[in-house]
Every structure is written in C-alpha cells, then in structure tokens.
C-alpha cells in the first residue's frame, strides 16, 4: 500500500528494523570516536559483558578500556540517543495535539517551563533529583499554562497555541534568568548557562536509568495511541464524532509529554528543534499515520542526536560545542522554511 509520503508506506517495517540496527551501530561508532579512538569491536564486547555478562570479565569488566567505554563515553552516547527519541516523539505528539506541524517542545514553551522549574530549585539550594523533579513540574505547568492561554476566548486554535507558547517561553526564560541573577550564584549561573545551550557532558548511568525508563515507556505509550493521535489530527469535532473524548486525551498526552521533556531538560538541557525536524522529515517520507510516525521518529531522533553530539565533540579541536547550539543552527532555518512554505500555501488557498 502506498501512503501519503514519498516512500511506499509498506516499507516502514523493514525501515524500522534498519534504523534500529543503524542506531546500535551508531552507538558503537560514537563511543569509539574521541581523543583515544577505540575499535567498535572492543566497544561491543565491553557492552556485552556489562549488559549481559557475556565474554571474559577480567578483560572487558575492568581497566582503562572499561572506564573509558562504559563509565565515560557510553553514558553520554546513550543519553544523546534517549533524549533524541524523547524529543522527537514529544514533537510528533504535540504536532498532533495542536494540529500544526510547527509545534515542538521548545517552541510551545514546555522546555522553558522545565528550565524555569530547575532554575528555581537551584535558587532554593536544592540539587540532584529535586532539580529533575522541579524540571518535570515546570514542564508540566508550562503545558497547562499554554493550554489555558490558548483556550482564552473560546476555542483553541493553532495560532493561539503558537503565540501562547512563544509568550510563555519568553516569560519562563526571563524568570529563570532573574532567579539566577537574584541569587548571585556563579556556580549556579554557569550550570544554568550550560543548560540553556544543552549538552550530554553530565551523563551518568544512575541518571540515564531514569531517563531511559521514562523514554521507553513514553514512546511505547504514544505508539499504542496511534489511532487516537490520528483522530486528533482531524480536529476536535471530527475526533469527537468518531468516538474520542478529545479534551481528556489532549490533556493526558500533553502531561505525558511534559514528563518526558522535563526529564530530558534536567539531564541534557534545552535542545531545540529536534522535535520539529525529525517528525517533519519522516512525514515527508512516510506520511502522517502515527502508527509509522512514532517508531520511525523515535529511532531517527536517537540516531540524529548521537551523531550531532559526535560532531559537537570533534568540530572544535580541544573544545566542545554545546549540542543545543548545533540543533538550533540547523533547526531554526528549517522552522523558518516550514513557516514560509505554510504561509505561501495558505495564501494560495485563500
């Protein structure tokens, strides 16, 4: 069967398997790249021993190679993959909820809300898990605030949602910066600055455990909701006449996405436009059916951020580029192009 994309829709299954394989290869290759190159074979053998207990523990379970591969590089690469999956899928979900391909956790202000939550926690002298939790609560509250703002004066429209998102983004960003300014905490300020630019440098296994758990469950949950997400794209009234309760669904999906984004922001800072670019590309190739869109976007998003992080590590000799800067440099023009194309189409239709 052919779908709405450039490629045959029936190819999505094999493509998914291919992407899963590519993701595993990318993880190995990305761990191998660094100041000391490590052959992929060694990376996989270490991973096999650490994950499944296969192989020779005395060779792969300790020593310098183990430290570099398993304790330093692997957490970082795995975090990049997890965040990429999470942000892409949240982008897909928000686009369905808002019925607009321009939505993204960053653009709707959910990332900024999470950032503000974490900054407030920092200002109050809380650290670690409390900051992560505050990030989730912040993202959560920002989602609710965006919905409430967009609902002012009646029906939610895409334009009102985008405006509410950018307004909220500005408010949260300013409030977070104010918090940092008032508390005069240089260390905190440096940490927050890193957060606004995004990066995977702070990765560790304990943090990754939570992140991967939430991402995995979130992606599976949204995949299971493919039909409801498809119905939501028809609009509130049509979804209702086809048996969906759109209001409660929309709330459930936004809140789930907020938890996923909150944890991503806590672990890796604000990384924009991934949730915009990846779903857009997948839609172009395979059409808008969420049965295909969710898994394909998750895998592609993971692969994308793994390689974006590699690029950030090697592009400046002796230094590291924050990954949020790279995604914004690539993603913002895509956003503008999408906006321009859309406006042109709208004019043509009017």
């Amino acid at each position: 069967m052919r779908g709405a994309g450039l490629l045959p829709a029936a190819a999505w299954g094999p493509v998914c398997l291919g992407l899963a394989g590519l993701l595993i290869l990318s993880l190995g290759a990305a761990v191998g790249i660094g100041t000391i190159p490590i052959p992929p074979e060694d990376v996989y053998r270490t991973a096999l021993w650490c994950l499944l207990g296969l192989g020779d523990g005395s060779q792969w379970g300790s020593g310098a190679l183990y430290d570099v591969v398993w304790l330093i590089r692997m957490p970082r690469v795995v975090l990049a993959a997890g965040v990429g999956m999470s942000l892409s899928v949240c982008g897909v979900v928000m686009q369905a909820v808002v019925r607009n391909p321009l939505a993204d956790p960053y653009i709707l202000g959910v990332s900024s809300g999470a950032y503000l939550g974490a900054a407030l926690a920092l200002g109050l002298g809380l650290g670690g898990a409390a900051m992560g939790l505050a990030g989730c609560v912040g993202g959560f509250s920002a989602s609710l605030a965006v919905l409430a703002l967009a609902r002012l004066g009646g029906r939610i429209t895409a334009v009102k949602l985008l405006l509410a998102g950018s307004a909220l983004s500005a408010v949260c960003g300013a409030a977070a910066n104010l918090t940092v300014f008032l508390f005069h905490d240089d260390r905190g300020a440096a940490a927050l600055l890193q957060w606004t630019m995004g990066g995977f440098g702070g990765a560790s296994w304990p943090g990754n455990g939570l992140m991967l758990g939430v991402t995995g469950l979130g992606v599976l949950f949204f995949w299971s909701q493919f039909r409801s997400l498809n119905l939501l794209t028809l609009g509130e009234e049509a979804a209702m006449t086809l048996g969906l309760e759109p209001r409660s669904r929309r709330l459930l999906y936004l809140l789930t996405a907020a938890v996923m984004v909150g944890i991503s922001v806590y672990q890796a800072g604000m990384i924009g436009f991934v949730g915009l670019m990846i779903p857009h590309t997948i839609r172009l190739l395979f059409g808008g059916d969420h049965r295909r869109l969710i898994p394909l976007s998750a895998l592609t998003g993971g692969i994308f951020l793994v390689w974006a992080d590699v690029l950030c590590r090697v592009v400046l000799p002796g230094n590291e580029l924050p990954v949020g800067i790279l995604t914004a440099l690539v993603g913002a023009p895509v956003f503008v192009a999408l906006l321009a194309g859309r406006s042109r189409r709208m004019e043509g239709m009017g």
Binding site: M1, R2, G3, A4, G5, Q95, R99, P101, R227, N230, L231, T233, L234, G235, E237, A238, T241, L242, G243, L244, R283, G287, G288, D289
Partner: peptide, 25 residues
C-alpha cells in the same frame, strides 16, 4: 455519523487513511 460543514484537511493523510478512521468507533 457526521459530515460537518468545514472539513479541515489534516496534514499528510491519504483519502483511504481518512476513510479508514471511520472504523475507529
């Protein structure tokens, strides 16, 4: 079943996919 006055055009959906959504209930 309802055919409303304004049928918004969802992004990236084929005619067949739209009609199959009629089976959702």
């Amino acid at each position: 079943a309802v055919v409303a006055q304004h049928n918004d055009c969802p992004m990236d959906m084929t005619v067949e996919e739209l009609v199959l959504l009629g089976r959702s209930p």
